[in-house]
Design a protein around this nucleic acid. Sequence first.
DNA 1: GTGAAAGCGCTAACAG
DNA 2: CTGTTAGCGCTTTCAC
Lengths: 332, 332
Amino acid sequence: MNATKVLMSDVARAAGVARVTVSRVLSDPDSVAPATRAAVQEAVARLGYVPNLNAGTLASSRSRIVGAIVPTLSNAWFADTMDGLSQVLGTAGYQLLLGQTGYDVDAEEKLVDAFIGRRVDALVLTGTSHNAGIRSKLQKAGIPTVECWDLCDDPIDMVVGFSNEATGEAVAAHLLARGCRRFGFLGADEDRARKRLQGYRSAIARAGAGDVMVQATAPPSSIDDGAAGLSRLLASAPDLQGVFCSNDTLALGALLECRRRGLAVPRDLSVVGFSDLPVAAACVPPLTTVRIDSRALGERTGELLAQRLRRDPPAGARIHDVGFSLAIRDSA
Amino acid sequence: MNATKVLMSDVARAAGVARVTVSRVLSDPDSVAPATRAAVQEAVARLGYVPNLNAGTLASSRSRIVGAIVPTLSNAWFADTMDGLSQVLGTAGYQLLLGQTGYDVDAEEKLVDAFIGRRVDALVLTGTSHNAGIRSKLQKAGIPTVECWDLCDDPIDMVVGFSNEATGEAVAAHLLARGCRRFGFLGADEDRARKRLQGYRSAIARAGAGDVMVQATAPPSSIDDGAAGLSRLLASAPDLQGVFCSNDTLALGALLECRRRGLAVPRDLSVVGFSDLPVAAACVPPLTTVRIDSRALGERTGELLAQRLRRDPPAGARIHDVGFSLAIRDSA
DNA sequence: GTGAAAGCGCTAACAG
DNA sequence: CTGTTAGCGCTTTCAC
């Protein structure tokens, strides 16, 4: 029911109060007398007033926006994390400003600058390896930050994730227990995948099972990358017994390649994936994989941030390990 | 190398120029003399100046933010569209503010209000069915808008998508050509899926092949929903010959259920999916599905918006059909 | 419980 | 090419 631009002063006039009063009704209704409040709310509705949040942000230096930076949304796991995050933040009255790096660390720093420029109330980063400037900028700006999808001892602010090294160790232990003695790794060339390899390799070395054949692929991973990667692995190590793929997409490709070659999984080759995509349980054979609850990860991150932004609680822990588990199915 | 808050005036002082000049160097470097520009850039770098974009937005009423509203990010197709969109927009200097509705139309309207309040430069909506208020608010505010993932004759502003009805018709034609005479539909209870059903059903009716057994599931779809849905369909129509699933996730579940029941696909039952997820080609049997290039859809949307926001071109078409194709594999 | 004054930090006009 | 003068629309003190 309005024309072009309804301002707070228009609402104030219509309700016969001062602008501040309108502002109070909008941000903290209980601080205004019921009758006044009702009059203002009526005027807001009647005029179809939509507050300019940028003006509010400028005046209060609180934006009610949380920035999040991910490598890509094309991976179901990051998308799920963002889904959970956005849902929790939405409920708490925050909005999600999203940035994608495409796995480029410089892009990440630029995004951080832009987000600081927007005065985001908090920031979510993926992983724990960042350009030097990021940590100092964020700490200087005093922006609550959570790094997710990995752990580290000295987070910028908070970290919620799991130990990528530990997942590699767990997979190695499982494969070793199944009798594998000749190991391969098929992984995206990316920080967290490298940590998984590190854990995997050292557990295998400790068991005296020799070295790990490694095949790296460029992110983002595709099913074809998985198939091609396995072929290359097999070319140099035809006697391979177990392969750990740094994500389920690659594992799916590996499984496909096995079928094409007539290799029986897991009899001839054990295949383990990572992240437990919905299809992992549905493919043939069902994929043994490291299970990460990506959505819960995002939700947990959102709750932590919402709590921190509410300011009531006394800080809380900085390091949150959400753990992982091995979904043992038929492929290994 | 700064302390707390570096303002544009600090940079101006350091460089010996007025604030506007700094502003110009930042937004349109070529409008400033090379020497002056260099001095300003040096001062910016030295002081570590990060402009407050909210102040800029307030003063210029251009936010360099594009809002996007999707039902959920947990579906790879929407996530891919957002990935493509965010990438193109990022290149053009825009950022993505993301909102999720969880398939709730009222949530959508609230998000639209919030986005208008933030003065987003443009808005992307999913689908073409929206609450009454949305259209008028957006048009009144003059916000460039694109609705995507469907088509319609009278978009709010622009629409980029494909005809969901036509996909249903194409699937029906394919199934009919393969000799199916007893049809089922397994679909999420959601606007675009209903349109697919509509096209499917009417093509089948035209062919005189009787009615379609329908089983609806609540979004978001899971593989289990697909399996359970097919069971229910089979319970009431054991002689089913062809089933169209409104997305690949459901189709995957249906395929699984067939395997459990010892039903040969496609001999006993033909199964068609929708959207061509990466796994569609990799499952057993490979899934015949309607192929949509979700990422391209987002990219196209981004390009259209970027162009519109640049203002140089003379409007351009409002309706953009990106089409679809049938990826015919083994399941039907 | 409500109001008056004083900005938040930047860009749009217009001058020169 | 550069500077001056005014705001953008809201929230924050601090009074009353």
